[in-house]
Computed example of a mutant assay.
Amino acid sequence: MLELKNVSKSFGSNVVLKDISLQIDTGEIVSILGPSGCGKTTLLNVILGLTDLTSGQIFFDGESLSNVPMKKRGFNIVFQDFALFPNLNAYENIVYGLRNNPQASTMQEVRDLIDLLDLEKHLNKRIDELSGGQKQRVAIARTLVMKPRLLLLDEPLSALDGMIKESIKARIKQIARQFNLTTVIVTHDPEEALSLSDKVLILNGGLISQYADPLSIVHKPANTFIKDFILRQLTIKRDNIFRLFNTEIAA
């Protein structure tokens, strides 16, 4: 379980996160959602250990991480731009981390991940020969071979559309379930957050505006901001939301 207690982060006089407290259970998929500048990426970086806390505490399975450096937390992130090595082919990117930590995964486990993500026919391709969806799957595979205790995804679907986006969403869900892997996702897209996650954390101005399961957010928005930010945007994609929840959205 990941637990944040009264987490705050300031950059000089700019307060980005204010008194964030929440729990994420093992194996849950949680999306962090909110408008630009609300603190989504800063919160992700604080969990990862890339950014230090100003105040508060972070625990994972009861262990305090507040003073644990990023490399020792055992968390891994898939960045929005994939951050793949252009001089290496797809397979070399996937196994790159095993150079310094060969015991993380066996070759059979690597092959199993390649099969799970349907990458076999793309292994010898250069990165510039891969589609956006293929790059995303390579980036996810490269992260998973290191067996992270927590998977962090920064806007994993922002560069994708249509069936490719739906395919990657399905694979993220499958991976989280199969490996019982706690997964935290930053996204700006309400539909994406609601359809992909067990719970959604909505930030506004560095504060928690609502933290609940998707149905509760749709049917019981906590405040006017949630109604404006979530429901009005979802009206544009109403048919998709009907399909997700098989029910009507209250006006």
Rank of each mutant, 00 (worst) to 15 (best):
K72L: 07
L50G: 03
V95L: 08
Q136W: 03
L48H: 04
D118G: 11
K125T: 03
K135S: 07
P102A: 11
L88V: 05
E248D: 14
I164H: 01
F245V: 15
L117I: 13
K173D: 04
D25I: 01
L181I: 05
T41L: 07
K72S: 13
I94V: 14
N89C: 08
G162L: 10
A193G: 04
G56K: 03
L88P: 00
T41E: 06
F229Y: 14
Q134K: 10
R126L: 12
P102V: 09
I202E: 00
L17Q: 00
L2P: 00
L119I: 11
E155V: 13
S64E: 15
H219C: 05
S10L: 05
D239E: 15
K199G: 02
T54P: 06
L207W: 02
N6M: 06
A193Y: 04
I230A: 10
I208R: 09
L116D: 06
Y91V: 03
S209Y: 02
P221R: 14
I164E: 11
K165F: 07
I217R: 08
K227G: 08
I241C: 07
G39T: 09
T41D: 08
L215Q: 11
M1F: 11
F75N: 01
T51M: 12
G12W: 11
N246G: 14
L234G: 06
P35N: 10
D25V: 04
F82A: 05
F225V: 09
N93W: 09
L123P: 03
G97M: 05
V95S: 05
R238C: 03
R111A: 14
I241G: 02
F85K: 10
N93F: 04
S31L: 04
F245G: 10
Q108A: 15
G205F: 01
E28T: 04
N45C: 07
D61R: 12
I217T: 09
L207F: 10
A139R: 08
L113W: 15
D161C: 13
Y96I: 02
K40S: 09
D25S: 13
G34K: 05
S167K: 14
A141C: 13
P156Y: 05
F79V: 06
S158Q: 08
E166V: 12
I164T: 15
F59Q: 02
S10Q: 12
G132L: 05
L196P: 00
G74D: 00
T42W: 10
V46Q: 03
G132M: 08
D154F: 04
F75D: 00
P190D: 02
E155L: 12
L150T: 01
L113M: 13
V200N: 00
L116Q: 15
R73H: 03
D161A: 13
E92T: 04
E63N: 08
V46T: 14
L153H: 00
L113A: 10
I24D: 00
V184R: 01
K5T: 13
F75S: 00
T54R: 09
H122E: 15
L201A: 13
L119R: 03
P156M: 04
V184A: 01
E166A: 14
F79K: 08
D228I: 07
R142D: 02
N89T: 05
E191I: 11
L98R: 15
